[in-house]
């Protein structure tokens, strides 16, 4: 009956959706193995402890708030020290595969002398080992990896797991960091947010993405308007578009950008280069709007419309707005 420590990610003192996905994944693993305990550890400024109820609701037997004024922002050095301390004796430590985990998980691996399974699509326990599937070769292949003996550190791809409630009685604890964040050598001097309240690509259930078929930068507002009509959509872009400066680099979806799996991916004026498909082919439903009926994007799309994005998108925006009104 393996116990699992989940690192539940926060941003600005609030739980992220990926934290609920991670706890859901851990609960399912523990239950499948006969019912180990799931402990969820979150970092944030004072007041965090009162916001962690959803972790218990999604299956955490114990909820641990590590509070410090500095934790409005992540700090790799002190957070990894605290995680490693709390992970002692846990055969499995589970992260969400985010930018923050890319910084934290490998540090924890060294501190625990535990191997890493990164960005997993599925995770299962097999005796003293962990077996996971993982997208490799720019998402052209899927590898099944086995790591062990435990302890093993795992990170789970955002959106690979759907959060599911499985309530446990709330057992909460508040702790102080195991190392002083002020002593960390890497200092954050500024934070640049690329748009207030913008839904992150990794968490958005819907992504509307634009490519060169939009012809010019100004036409990207059509993509933004369509995203606005869905209400819960983020805006993505192809590498060609971010290279040309139409959109910021962090909006790029593909082999060298973000890897996303939303419920709905709408590709607008995107031909479907391998480099782009690598970042979005695991989306649940894909819609493509492109002038060229031979464009490779139509090979992965569930639904396609052949036509000029500049004509089709405004019509779709109006129709989506209308459909949303009916709800």
């Amino acid at each position: 009956m393996p116990n699992i420590l989940v690192v539940a990610e926060t941003r600005g003192g609030e739980l992220r959706k990926v934290a609920l996905e991670a706890v859901t994944a851990a609960r399912a693993l523990a239950d499948a193995a006969g019912g180990g305990e799931v402990h969820a550890l979150a970092f944030g400024p004072p007041g965090l402890a009162g916001k962690l109820g959803p972790l218990a609701a999604h299956g955490a037997d114990r909820v641990i708030a590590c509070e410090h004024a500095a934790y409005a922002r992540a700090d790799g050095e002190s957070m990894s020290a605290t995680i490693a301390l709390r992970a002692a004796g846990f055969p499995l430590v589970l992260f969400s595969a985010t930018a923050q985990a890319r910084d934290l998980a490998p540090r924890v691996c060294v501190k625990l002398d535990a191997p890493l399974l990164s960005d997993c699509l599925t995770v299962a326990l097999s005796g003293q080992s962990v077996v996971a599937t993982h997208s490799t070769y720019t998402a052209k292949l899927v590898a099944t990896l086995k790591a062990g003996p435990m302890p093993v550190v795992v990170s789970v791809r955002p959106s690979a797991v759907t959060p599911a409630e499985k309530a446990r009685p709330l057992s909460a604890e508040t702790i102080a960091p195991a190392a002083d964040p002020a002593a960390s050598r890497v200092k954050v001097t500024d934070v640049v947010t690329s748009g207030g309240g913008k839904i992150d690509l990794g968490e958005a259930p819907v992504i509307v993405s634009g490519g060169r078929g939009l012809k010019e930068k100004a036409n990207f507002k059509l993509v933004e308007e369509l995203a606005g009509a869905f209400g819960n959509a983020a805006v993505g872009a192809t590498r060609a578009v971010t290279d040309d400066g139409w959109r910021p680099h962090e909006d790029q979806i593909g082999q060298t950008g973000r890897l996303v799996s939303p419920d709905l991916y709408v590709a607008v004026g995107i031909s479907g280069a391998i480099q782009h498909l690598a970042g979005m082919r695991t989306s649940r439903t894909i819609v493509a709007i492109n002038k060229d009926p031979e464009a490779p994007i139509f090979k992965v799309a569930d639904y396609g419309i052949v036509g000029d994005a500049l004509e089709v998108v405004p019509a779709l925006t109006a129709a989506v707005r209308e459909a949303k009104k009916g709800h």
Partner: peptide, 10 residues
């Protein structure tokens, strides 16, 4: 680059 934000660090 983080998801939806960027940090400047020293």
């Amino acid at each position: 680059e983080l998801e939806g934000a960027a940090e400047l660090l020293e």
